[in-house]
């Protein structure tokens, strides 16, 4: 008697661990192993392969942003544009005043003017930033062959330090930000320059603890050592527990790492 064909019989009596699926898995695992070995032996090759995709992503992001920006109300945009232009003019004037004052003070006290030497570093375009890259790391398009060294300080616009170079390949570098979770930085807060230790909270934010007697306020600037004291953030919240002798400061950074497109790496 002819046995009736049964799909269930066919698959139940077959060994799922042999045949074509195993070959396919084997091939895919082989390709994955190859990439992992390449990462270990020739990391520059991986970055070189990825760079066109990252640049394409940045271009696409800018194009989409430009296209959607035009969808706003025209009159509202025109008004906002006028206000922003006025603010820019005002800030430019303030900058000129402060630069002149800084130069006068430098001449009075001696030393070099940081404004004159502000562009001695290596300008590097950001290829990948959070959330594309892991939080609190940036991948930039300048590497060892361009003069980038591990440990170099990295600053954003305005000369605000944001991190240090963690590793380099021939033409790219990975930057660890100061705000990486677990990273600590010595700093000061307020006009009286009260010393404190910034603890990275990730995503560009910091926290710090001070005695209640320090009397810091929301809006006070936080500075890190550089040439002098360089502002890196402002206090956005002061958390106080009546049973604790200290307060916890939540610090908002001045630099938005999610929209940073260019950084400067010190030589």
């Amino acid at each position: 008697m002819k046995k009736q064909y049964s799909l269930r019989h066919k698959y139940r009596n077959g060994n799922p661990l042999t045949g074509t699926p195993v070959v396919v898995f084997g091939v895919v695992l082989g390709i994955a192993a190859l990439f992992l070995v390449l990462r270990l032996v020739f990391p520059a090759v991986i970055i070189a392969l990825a760079e066109p995709f990252w640049k394409g992503g940045v271009t696409l992001e800018a194009a989409v942003g430009g296209a959607t920006a035009g969808m706003g109300n025209a009159a509202m945009l025109a008004k906002e544009n006028t206000q922003l232009a006025q603010q820019v003019a005002s800030l430019q004037n303030q900058n000129a005043v402060l630069t002149a004052r800084s130069q006068d003070l430098t001449k009075l006290l001696g030393g070099t003017n940081t404004a004159e030497t502000s562009m001695q570093g290596i300008a590097a375009g950001v290829l990948a930033r959070p959330p594309l890259s892991p939080y609190d790391t940036l991948i930039v398009g300048m590497g060892a062959k361009d003069g980038v060294v591990v440990g170099a300080t990295v600053t954003a616009s305005g000369g605000i330090p944001i991190g240090t170079v963690q590793s380099t390949t021939a033409h790219t570098a990975t930057i660890t930000l100061l705000s990486m979770a677990g990273h600590t930085t010595n700093a000061w807060v307020g006009e009286s320059r009260i010393p404190l230790t910034l603890a990275g909270m990730g995503a560009g934010a910091f926290t710090a603890t001070l005695p209640k007697a320090a009397a810091v306020n929301v809006g006070d600037n936080v500075y890190v050592p550089g040439p002098g004291a360089i502002p890196v953030g402002t206090i956005s919240q002061v958390e106080s527990d009546p049973s604790s002798p200290s307060v916890t400061l939540n610090i908002q950074p001045l630099v938005n790492i999610f929209s940073t497109t260019w950084v400067e790496i010190s030589r």
Binding site: F25, A32, F35
Partner: peptide, 19 residues
């Protein structure tokens, strides 16, 4: 296609995490 997610994970490792 079950094996494809292996390559997705590998690409994440090689692109964004150190050696």
């Amino acid at each position: 296609f079950p094996p494809i997610v292996i390559l997705t994970g590998t690409f994440i490792d090689v692109l964004y995490f150190g050696t």
